[in-house]
C-alpha cells in the first residue's frame, strides 16, 4: 500500500434511476456507501476503475471518490460526496429516505 494514497471508492449514477451507486468487491453495484469496496492502493484503484467502467449498460459517469475509514465503513471526505450519499437537505428524499427503508429491511431479516 502506497503511503500517500488517499483511500477511494468507485462511484457512478445508475443508468435507469440516476441514483448514486458504488462499486463492490464482487464487481456489483450498491446504493450504499457502507457496502462499497475501499481501494487503498493506487494501481489497484486504477484497475478496478477500468473494470467498473466496463459496465456501461448499468452506469453513467464512473469515477474514484476519496473516502476516510469510519466505524461503519468508508466516510466521504468532501461535502459533495456526503450530499450524494444522503440526498438533498431541503426535502427528505433520495438516499436518506431509501436508506431508512434499507435499514428497516435489514433489521427485519
Amino acid at each position: 500500500m502506497s503511503r500517500d494514497f488517499t483511500p477511494k471508492v468507485i462511484t457512478a449514477n445508475a443508468l435507469i434511476e440516476g441514483d448514486v451507486i458504488y462499486f463492490t468487491a464482487d464487481n456489483g453495484w450498491t446504493r450504499h456507501l457502507c457496502e462499497a469496496e475501499v481501494l487503498t492502493d493506487e494501481a489497484d484503484a486504477d484497475l478496478r476503475l477500468l473494470q467498473a467502467q466496463a459496465q456501461p449498460h448499468l452506469t453513467v459517469g464512473v469515477y474514484l471518490a476519496d473516502v476516510a475509514p469510519g466505524a461503519t465503513g468508508p466516510e466521504p471526505t468532501h461535502f459533495r460526496e456526503d450530499f450524494r450519499r444522503k440526498g438533498p437537505s431541503n426535502l427528505f428524499h433520495g438516499k436518506q429516505a431509501d436508506g431508512l427503508a434499507h435499514v428497516q429491511a435489514r433489521a427485519g431479516d
Binding site: N13, L15, I16, E17, G18, D19, V20, P56, H57, V60, G61, R80, F83, R84, G87, P88, H93, G94, K95
Partner: peptide, 26 residues
Amino acid sequence: RIDGSLTEDEFKPLRLMNGLYLQLHA
C-alpha cells in the same frame, strides 16, 4: 441506450437536446 446500442457519449447530446440532465441524485 438501455439495450446498449448507444454509449453514454453518444446518448448524452441526444438527451440534452431534449432537456434531460443527469444531476447529483437523479
